[in-house]
């Protein structure tokens, strides 16, 4: 097994162009598990941890540009106010050790339907900035996931950053696991209220071949909230319940060792209903974030 350690982003992109089968490694929380279990035997590992640019975040035209190599622990401590939904997702990930190593870029690159960051990214309407020696392009996260552990990334491309516009309203994130910490999602749900554009964002995890939105639920809720954004009036319980049903209806889960399809659908309806209830309460209190 060969091991490349580029020191700069340009070197990393050249290396990836020259060795398209190279497996990029950042935190290693997915790659090393695959190698240790004998499921992954890359001819070449491309270590990105020396590339300083990847480990930084910045604000750019109002949006947060989150370097692909920023670990979850820093998302929580440094960006909890700006990216509340993603920070809530990050808190549910693994153990402190995993959160110190694992990165949002790695989560995207693996593109597992169970990746914890995805529902938050979907709800927030994030964009993925990818690059190669050919240049840089931006992919809306909704178009990034292409199948089970498949993404829109070309074989010479690396993920540079994620761009997320800080929310104009509350965000929520919930995840089901069969223990109270350090668990892979049985089902997960991300919600973002966007009062500035009078829109609703959703994200579903672990309940379809890819992470996905629940467009019908988003449209329904945006319609219901049309008269409520300004009045900040109480949200009818029936609206929250219907929203939950529509989120659940957007899922296409399977039975596996972690849970049954029926449970996943049920759990999504409960999570979505509760998340909306909490988010709306926060909105009524005028609290833009709730992280």
């Amino acid at each position: 097994m060969q091991f490349l350690q580029p020191a700069t982003w340009a070197e990393a992109l050249e290396a990836k162009a020259a060795h398209r089968d190279a497996v990029p490694i950042a935190g290693g929380t997915d790659v090393m598990v695959g190698i240790n279990f004998g499921r992954l035997r890359p001819a070449l590992l491309l270590d990105l941890t020396r590339v300083a640019d990847l480990r930084q975040w910045d604000t750019d035209d109002g949006a947060v540009r989150l370097g692909a190599g920023v670990p979850y622990a820093r998302v929580i401590t440094e960006l909890g106010d700006r990216l509340p939904g993603l920070a809530m997702a990050a808190r549910t990930i693994g153990s402190p050790q995993i959160r110190n190593r694992g990165t949002v870029g790695g989560n995207l690159a693996t593109a597992s339907p169970a990746g914890d960051a995805h529902p938050a990214l979907l709800a927030a309407g994030a964009e993925v900035e990818v690059a190669s020696v050919r240049g840089t392009r931006t992919i809306p996260v909704t178009e990034f996931y292409r199948g089970v552990k498949r993404s829109a990334l070309a074989d010479d491309e690396l993920i540079a950053a994620v761009r997320i516009t800080p929310p104009s309203g509350p965000q929520q994130y919930s995840k089901i696991g069969t223990r109270n910490a350090m668990v892979i999602a049985v089902a997960a749900f991300g919600l973002a209220l966007h009062p500035a554009r009078r829109a609703v964002g959703t994200g579903i995890g672990s309940a379809a071949p890819t992470p996905r939105r629940a467009p019908a639920a988003e449209e329904f809720l945006a319609g219901e909230l049309d008269g409520l954004w300004d009045s900040r009036a109480e949200l009818p319980a029936a609206t929250a319940a219907r929203f939950g049903e529509l989120v659940a209806a957007a899922a296409a889960p399977i039975d596996d060792v972690r849970g049954t399809a029926r449970y996943r659908v049920h759990a999504l309806s409960v999570m979505a209903r509760r998340a909306l209830t909490w988010a709306w309460l926060d909105y009524r209190k005028g609290d833009p974030t709730c992280a």
């Binding site: 809530m88 808190r91 549910t92 929520q172 994130y173 919930s174 995840k175 089901i176 696991g177 109270n180 910490a181 668990v183 409960v270 999570m271 509760r274 209830t277 909490w278």
Partner: peptide, 16 residues
Amino acid sequence: LRDMPGGVSNTTHGEG
């Protein structure tokens, strides 16, 4: 949240 079923996965604030 650490006192709740589901822990920091934020599935309930006491509901249910």
